[in-house]
Structures are given as C-alpha cells and as structure tokens.
Write a protein that binds this DNA or RNA. Structure first.
Length: 494
RNA sequence: GCCCCCAUUGUCUAGUGGCCCAGGACGUGGCCCUCUCAAGGCCAAAACACGGGUUCGAAUCCCGUUGGGGGCACCA
C-alpha cells in the first residue's frame, strides 16, 4: 500500500528580516510534513548573513510562529544537532574555505571591480537594452596576480566563473527539466568584500554539509537554480531534489501582497503574518489546513485535514506549480470548522485570553458551560467578545429602541415583558426544559410571533440583538440576574 | 530590455488522451429548518484564455499568441 520512502532531511531556512508570513509558514509546513511522513528530519536554519537587513526579534518570532502552528523541528539554533551551528552568521569560516576551494579548482575568481565601475557597466547595458550582467573585467586575471593584489590590501569579492557557452539543464520536481543557455547566466558574487558569503554559496554549502535531501523553497529562487547547480557540480556534491513552490498572490489574483493590500486585509480582520493571525483569533489547526491546500491537494473532495492527517496524506507529487491567490474567506471557513471540532474545555481555554483582553473576568466553569453553544457561531476566537461578553458583565446596557421588536408598538413590547416576569418568577428554575414550555404558551396567547417575543427577551436578557440561543443563555446567567434584567428592561420602556 | 515559470468557474482546486457536454470546496443566489446569529439540508448560476497542429479521439501532448507571476545586487 504505502510505498517505502527514504527518510528525508529537509530544511526551513528563513532569513530573520521581518515578520513571518504565510508563504514561509506554508514552506515550513511542507518541509515538516515531508520529514515526518518519511521518518526523516526537519532542520531549522537561520540565514542571517545580511547584517543590513537583520531584525533582532525576527528569529524569536519565527520560532514562536512555528511552535504555534505545531510545526516542530528536530535540529535548529535553539535545539542544536549534529550539523550545527544552525545560524549562518556562525559559519563564516566554513564558507570561506569552500570559496577558496572553488578558486583553486578554477571555478571561481577574485574580482577587484569597484561598485562604481559595476554601476557604470550596468547603466551602459541598460542604455543599450542589453541584459544586465558582469562584464568580465577580472575574469581572466591569473590567480597569482590576484593573490599579490590581495596581499597588497586591495578589496575584492569572489565570483563564480560561469561557462560562456553551452547550456545547463536543471530539474525541478514540480516542473521537470529546465534548460537555459549559459551565456545568459552571470558571474555571480559568492563572497562579499567584507568576507561574508552570499546566499548562493552559503545555502549550497550548508545543504551539503547538513545532508539535505529535499530543498523546498519559493519560486523566486528558480532563476538562480542553474547557478546553484553549477556550484553543486563544481564541488562534485550530490544534487538534492529541488521543489520550487509558487508564490501567493493577493486576493484579486493580480500581483503579490503589497503593503497596501496587507493594510487592507488587516482592516477586515485578516493578515498574512502568522503572529497577527494568532492575535486575531485564528486557530493553528485552521491556518494549517488552509495553507496546506494552497498549492497541494489530496483528491477531488477531501479537504478537512488535521496536522496528523496531513503527515499521512501529503505528497510532494501532488503539488501545484501555478501561483495561488490568497482567499481569506476560505480561511474563515476552515477556522470555524476547526473551532467547532474543539472540545469544550479546549475552546474555553483558548477563548479565555480574548475575554480577559477585553477586561472580562470569565470563569472556566462558565466558559465550559457555554462552549457548546459558542462553537457553532465563532468564525474566530476573538468573536467571543461580541458574542458572549454579556455572560460576564455585571450590568448590561443597550438603547431602549432595541427592545422594540419589528412590527410591534412600544406598549406591546412593554406588555410582553411585564407578562413574562411573573411567569419566570413562578417557575422552579431557569433551566431550558423548565422555561421553554411556559414561554411558548405566552407566545401563543400573545398572538405575536416567537421571533418577536423572544427577540424582545433576548435584548432584555443579553443586551444584544444577536446572541447564543435564548433559553440556554438564561440558564447560564441564572434566574436572579435574568429577572433583574427583565425588570431593568421594563423600566427602560416606561 | 533579457531570462525563467505559470494558465480549469470570482477564488482554492480534481483531472496525467476516451470514465468530463468537466468533479469537490469557499463565496454568491434561492428554498427548507429556525427564538436572533450561526450550523445543517436541498437546489441553482458559474470554468478548460485564444489560435494552430498531433490523434479515431485533447482540458489533458506539441507549437505560437495573449495574459499573469518571478528573476536579472557585494539582499535573501
């Protein structure tokens, strides 16, 4: 049945330059799923060689985000492992060594071109409508001469010596073979003049040293795959399986999320940042289910998945190479779905902080009691405040006109309330099965509809026009409070 | 400007030459249920970008066009 798979070693290699977004989350998810389902290993590696863009809090946010999503890694900067260190900033010497090796073998060369010269070359190329590339000034300088210049203190970078003729064929697991002409490839910088390796070199070296078998990354890396392949082949290393995931587009499908769209999304309670999603009341189960399905599918009808389901059913062979527009409405759907499947106690625990943030003091007991009637109507955990805040208020307030049901006069509404009061007072309790029958009889006698009568009572008891079911709500609030609130409503209409 | 990738309903997608006058889901519209809101049930509208091939037969293979996306840094 299940084919035997080799344990995969996969790595999630984010750079700590900002908030963790959905694209990263999905890459990490797929990494994790592949590792888990093959009995392999998931590695977290921090690519922090760009000191200019480094954001100190980013790594912590990343780790927190992964943890929240339930994506556990086996090796990483805070966990250690046999192939550390797992921060590239701690591996500088390793890259230098391999860069030297490339120069020795003739696959790379020292370049002394100044940034000004490079800029001028680029400008000229732009003016001539040529493709932008290194002009080859230092390509043929003999290594001996270069070493002398370096010894004399000249600043230099190390560039890859790309073949000028022929073509290169690379393989992407999603797209098959891709062939490019070598003449369009550039002599890319591998090591900067400050001695730090660039992504191209660092990532390939680390993937090799960390024995990575599958490289899952964004499609923005596809254009540099030929370079990476040349690097790997120059070293004579085994080629990992490359999987380039498509990018996420903004909801309209036209272009990727911009600053503007991000702000726009935030306005209606959505975000592409993992930490925001948590704060907005999304549950990780929902976010995981939703992101998993953007770019991957199981069959033509199954789409509810827990993390464990995904571990079992995910396959890198069913990935979709085309870009996907983010659909927040569907996130809401998945989120509601997973909230409904939470146990009462779990929901109570998760909803509590949101109530507390709105300065309510909810008890676990009440929370668990209302969980069943809450579950079905919470798109997000945060919605608990509007839906159920009244359970935890000592006093409620609302405009008097809310007590006037559609199609009824003020006096009629007042009458309903005054007639309800003695009925409730006379009952032995406030439980649903005690209250419902007499109140339905009242509706019958009044000649009004159940919607009108219960609507008035709903506002009187909860202060809201929209609430969980009336009888269940009264039961939780308790008889005395219910009676008091009805008396308050009666006064309000006088 | 040059290079690469992608292309099924509004959106996410199933589909790997006949099972497809294209299936599922979100969303949308309608109906049912109903104390509000949800949830649930039923029904409906909605797609193979275009043009050429190949083939007995194409959403599926090939070429071109168009559209969209990405890349062309001493960023990742």
């Amino acid at each position: 049945m299940t084919e035997i798979k080799q344990p995969a070693r996969v790595r999630f290699a984010p750079s700590p330059t900002g908030h963790m977004h959905l694209g990263s989350a999905r890459t990490a998810l797929y990494d994790y799923l592949l590792a888990r389902q093959t009995g392999g290993t998931f590695v977290l590696r921090i690519e922090d060689t760009d000191t200019k863009r480094y954001v100190p809090e980013a790594e912590e946010e990343l780790i927190k985000g992964l943890k929240w999503l339930g994506i556990e890694y086996d090796e990483g900067p805070d966990k250690g492992g046999p192939f550390g260190p797992y921060r590239q900033s701690e591996r500088k010497e390793i890259y230098s060594k391999y860069a030297e090796q490339l120069v020795e073998s003739g696959h790379a060369f020292y370049c002394f071109c100044s940034p000004e010269h490079l800029a001028k070359v680029r400008e000229a190329q732009q003016a001539n409508k040529e493709s932008l590339h290194y002009d080859g000034t230092c390509r043929e300088i003999p290594v001996e001469e270069s070493r002398k210049r370096i010894a004399a203190g000249e600043r230099f970078v190390i560039r890859f010596k790309m073949p000028k003729t022929g073509s290169t064929t690379v393989h992407d697991h999603l797209r098959g073979d891709i062939t490019v002409e070598n003449r369009v490839l550039d002599d890319s910088v591998l090591v900067k003049s400050d001695g730090w390796a660039l992504y191209h070199l660092a990532a390939m070296v680390d993937d090799y040293l960390m024995k990575i078998t599958h490289v899952i990354r964004g499609s923005e890396w596809l254009p540099s795959l030929p370079l990476h392949m040349h690097l790997i082949r120059a070293f004579g290393w085994p080629e990992p399986t490359f999987i380039h995931l498509s990018v996420f587009l903004k909801p309209s499908g036209k272009g990727k999320m911009s600053k503007r769209e991000t702000a726009e999304a935030m306005k209606d309670g959505h975000s592409i940042f993992v930490k925001d999603l948590e704060e907005l009341g999304y549950v990780p189960e929902g976010v995981v289910n939703w992101t998993a399905l953007m770019g991957w599918s199981y069959d033509d009808h199954t789409e509810y998945f827990s993390l464990q389901d995904l571990v079992e059913k995910f396959s890198i062979d069913h990935l979709n190479p085309s870009p996907a527009a983010i659909n927040f409405t569907k996130l809401d759907y998945f989120n509601a779905l997973h909230i409904r499947n939470l146990t009462d106690e779990d929901l109570a625990n998760r909803v509590k902080p949101f109530l507390e943030a709105a300065s309510y003091k909810p008890s676990m007991e009440t929370l668990i009691e209302i969980a069943p009637i809450l579950k079905e109507r919470l798109p997000t955990l945060g919605d608990v405040v509007d839906m159920a805040g009244f359970f935890f208020k000592d006093a409620i307030s609302y405009p008097a006109e809310d007590l006037i049901a559609k199609g009824l006069e003020k006096t009629q509404c007042h009458q309903i309330l005054t007639e309800t009061l003695p009925i409730l007072v006379g009952l032995s309790g406030i439980q649903k099965d005690i209250v419902e029958e007499p109140l339905r009889e009242l509706v019958e006698k009044s000649g009004f509809s159940a919607g009108q009568v219960f609507g008035i009572l709903r506002v009187a008891v909860t202060g809201q026009k929209v609430s969980p079911p009336l009888f269940e709500s009264m039961e939780v609030i308790g008889k005395d409070t219910v009676l008091n609130r009805i008396r308050q409503a009666i006064k309000l209409l006088e």
